[in-house]
């Protein structure tokens, strides 16, 4: 079980963060894949739909919307899905602590720092660290480095 990709976009479908761990295996270009995912997910009504949706022969999406941002993880079709909701939630919590009440603009202006957060938490499609304290301390150090 591992994450194939992490994708974050806003309600208009503008990509804020994207990270591939296995490369795009579908036949379409990266931009097509993003467009498909956006269409699939933005059409969902979160009261009537689950946070899981099959996407392709190999991949399903686990996603959650926080304010105007969608966080999506593409995972193997046979993976256990619910843990990825915890992945996403923890990621958002850490972003929140790091930026201090995070909003989309923080991620817009500091996209490279958002990547820094992502890279401290996930690597090679696996979760790397789950302690918020450890993460925040580490990120603070990295952020202050010249």
């Amino acid at each position: 079980m591992s994450i194939r990709f992490i994708l974050c976009f806003n309600k208009q479908g503008v990509v804020r963060l994207i990270r591939w761990y296995v490369g795009n295996e579908s036949s379409g270009d990266t931009q097509d894949v993003i467009a498909q995912i956006y269409r699939l997910i933005s059409s969902k009504d979160h009261k009537r739909h689950s946070n899981f949706v099959e996407f392709s022969e190999t991949t399903k999406l686990v996603y959650k919307r926080y304010a105007g941002l969608y966080f999506v993880m593409g995972v193997d079709l046979r993976d256990d899905d619910p843990i990825y909701l915890s992945h996403i939630h923890l990621f958002v919590e850490v972003l929140d602590s790091f930026f201090g009440n995070v909003c989309e603009l923080d991620i817009v202006f500091n996209f490279y720092k958002a990547y820094m957060v992502m890279d401290e938490m996930f690597l090679g499609g696996e979760i790397q660290e789950v302690s918020k304290d450890v993460l925040i301390e580490r990120l603070g150090t990295l952020d202050r480095l010249e």
Partner: peptide
């Protein structure tokens, strides 16, 4: 509201 905050946010960072 946060338009300008973004640049200020990570004042402790680079």
């Amino acid at each position: 509201r946060k338009a300008f905050k973004a640049a200020v946010v990570s004042s402790n960072g680079t």
